[in-house]
Write a protein that binds this DNA or RNA. Structure first.
Length: 482
RNA sequence: CGGGGCGUAGCGCAGCCCGGUUAGCGCGCAGCGUUCGGGACGCUGAGGUCGGAGGUUCGAAUCCUCUCGCCCCGACCA
């Protein structure tokens, strides 16, 4: 059996990437189908992965001075409709509650698709003076959006996320906060999930309903090299402050409306992690967020073997627990080969084999999931080697994803070339764009690609719009999006 | 919402066109035994209101009508 085909029950990525994604999520036990359309059951292994992500992102958010709180799931219709653009943008995907118990509600309640409309009126009560600002609050919760085409983790009717909502005295401070949180997302994605991103601004057509400006971090998925919006941060200007009456008396004695931001990142990052790092054998989880970082597979044939192996495994677990999340696979109803394949499918970064030969030599065999490289390690060096390898795997996954992003991004100057690239799933195209929504719309109509973002980092050079030939100072990322 | 497809054991499917003993196969599951350093094998066994309702018929998984659900493509999608 060739190494490339250790796992026979999973379709190859190259044969059908979308099917690979669906299969690997089910077979790695990240999620399962639910008996309701568009919703998924997140299984313990998948939820464990999300919990690792939550812990890391939550710490990063709190480090910027933000506190967690919790607001209601329901939003009265009249509140949701206060901000015109906001409600217009979300209307098609809002879920409504019209009955409670056995009577009709006087006013329908929306199940939150996002919480600005319930949080802002509450902030209005809390803010009287410039001394009450800024308000820096985040909540971890579920939201519901009635999507037509669900896709596990990437787009489900109900999903888990965090949404931060801040209020500020000046527009400059609000914009700085929006950009600060974008950087938090960038670091989370790149440093914790090993997913490189392009940070930028959304075009008017793509920005958040009701926002002044939307910042985004876009990630490139594997397989088809489409884009995924991995996190967004909105400068809401004073739009919500005005309609919800968040007013304060400033230092100068004037009564002013507050400026606000909101920013969110959802469990679609689980799907992104699957798509960015996975291969034909299954998942490859970045060590920092892998629920299990080292899977110990004991090997024995008889009671005599087992005695020695058991003692050694227990000593190993004791030592490794201080430096890694370790689990031992003691199942006696599975062969060793089966276990190897299963834990590779589940993407555990390191496998540790301990058999009679190892007991005799006071060593163990470490195998990397990403390269399958084997390391024979003396027991005394095991903890240090595991720590080093986990860090190396994390770095190598990021480097590989960076190479893929760079390798599948090209500067494109002509419409024909753009159309051809999109049709061939060749990756992202970096092209000049004049800023006219009509040009943007034509690209979308002709190629299905959209402007994923206007990157924050721009060269000083001028160019001509890929559609209309007007001079432009900005290059944008065109790509198909999940 | 438009187009296409599918509902039969936990999963994947055959059987349906052409109605007829007790509805079958693979995997999985349970028990026992042999195995075990890259998805082992044998024997035995459990598991089904054939998505639902109505109709035709001596007889329906199979034919007819209605209905529910799911998947894919398209449109739509902070």
């Amino acid at each position: 059996m060739s190494e490339a085909h250790f796992v026979e029950e999973l379709i190859d990525q190259g044969d059908d990437f979308d099917r690979w994604y669906v299969e690997v999520i089910r077979k790695a036990e990240l999620a399962d189908d639910a008996p309701v359309r568009g919703c998924k059951v997140i299984r313990p292994y998948g939820f464990g992965l999300w919990e690792q992500m939550v812990a890391r992102l939550d710490a990063r958010i709190k480090a910027t001075g933000v506190e967690n709180a919790y607001f209601p799931l329901f939003i009265p219709k009249s509140m949701l409709e206060r901000e015109a653009e906001h409600v217009e943008g979300f209307a098609p995907e809002v879920t409504w509650v019209t009955r409670g118990g056995d009577h009709e509600l006087e006013e329908p309640w929306a199940v939150r698709p996002t919480s600005e409309a319930i949080i802002c009126p509450i902030y209005a009560r809390w803010v009287q003076s410039y001394r009450d600002l800024p308000i820096l609050i985040n909540q971890w919760c579920n939201v519901v959006r009635w999507e037509e085409r669900p896709r596990a983790f990437l787009r489900t009717l109900e999903f888990l996320w965090q949404e931060g909502h801040t209020c500020h005295a000046t527009p400059e401070e609000a914009d700085a906060r929006a950009r600060q949180m974008l950087e938090v997302y960038r670091h989370f994605l790149e440093d914790d999930l090993a997913i490189p991103v392009v940070a930028g601004i959304k075009s008017e057509a793509e920005k958040f309903a009701g926002a002044l400006r939307t910042y985004t971090v876009e990630a490139m998925m594997g397989g088809k090299y489409w884009a995924l919006q991995a996190g967004t941060s909105h400068n809401l200007g004073d739009h919500f402050g005005r309609v919800f009456g968040i007013r304060f008396l400033d230092r100068d004695g004037e009564r002013k409306f507050a400026f606000s931001t909101s920013w969110g990142l959802s469990h679609r990052t689980v799907g992104a992690t699957v798509m960015v790092h996975g291969d034909d054998a299954g998942l490859k989880l970045p060590p920092k967020v892998a629920p299990i970082q080292v899977i110990v597979v004991p090997i024995w044939r008889n009671a005599e073997d087992l005695g020695g192996v058991e003692g050694m495994v227990n000593r190993i677990v004791e030592r490794l627990s201080a430096v890694a999340r370790v689990r031992v696979d003691w199942r006696d109803d599975r062969t060793v080969g089966y276990k190897f394949n299963e834990w590779e499918l589940k993407g555990v970064p390191l496998r540790l084999e301990v058999g009679p030969r190892d007991v005799a030599a006071d060593q163990a065999i470490l195998v990397r999931r990403d390269t399958r490289a084997k390391h024979i390690v003396a027991l005394d060096h095991l903890a240090a080697t595991v720590e080093t390898l986990l860090a190396t795997i994390q770095d190598d996954l990021f480097a590989a994803a960076q190479r893929s992003l760079a390798g599948h991004t090209a500067e494109v100057a002509t419409r024909d070339e753009l159309t051809a690239r999109v049709a061939a799933n060749a990756g992202w195209s970096l092209s000049y764009w004049c800023g006219d929504p009509a040009c943007e719309g034509r690209v979308k109509a002709e190629t299905k690609a959209t402007i994923r973002c206007i990157p924050l980092e721009q060269s000083a050079e001028l160019g001509t719009c890929i559609i209309c030939d007007h001079t432009s100072h900005q290059r944008v990322v065109f790509a198909r999006a999940y």
